[in-house]
């Protein structure tokens, strides 16, 4: 059966109140594998593992159906802005 991208997105939105979220279905459509980028204030002061645990916990129900969850990014809004600025800079430099 599997889980839809929308289900994953709505659970994460409801529980972690993200300011940015991107979910990519990496399963080729069967809904068993996702890559996630998420930005939330709730990650403030939390270590990487704790952040990833929060994501896993938010998806507790979905995880029963999901085979693989690749958390590409779990950052705070502050970190996100810094990373965006940096990537803009390097884009400008390479242009």
């Amino acid at each position: 059966m599997g889980v839809t991208k929308e289900q994953v997105e709505s659970s994460l939105k409801a529980k972690l109140n993200p300011s940015h979220i991107e979910i990519i279905d990496t399963s080729g459509g069967c809904g068993a594998s996702f890559a996630i980028e998420i930005v939330s204030e709730q990650f403030e002061g939390k270590r990487l593992l704790e952040r990833h645990r929060m994501v896993n916990a938010a998806l507790e129900e979905e995880m029963k159906e999901i085979h693989a969850l690749s958390i590409k990014k779990a950052v705070t809004p502050e970190q996100w802005n810094q990373q965006q600025q940096q990537s803009n800079k390097s884009d400008a430099a390479s242009a």
Binding site: H52, R53, N56, M63, I66, A68, L69, S70
Partner: peptide, 23 residues
């Protein structure tokens, strides 16, 4: 208390899966 495999432990401490290990 982690849902997926692989799982990696370093010095007795749970690190996470492949992504967390890389980091």
């Amino acid at each position: 208390n982690w849902p997926t495999f692989p799982q990696i432990f370093i010095k007795g401490e749970f690190i996470g899966g492949s992504g967390e290990l890389k980091e």
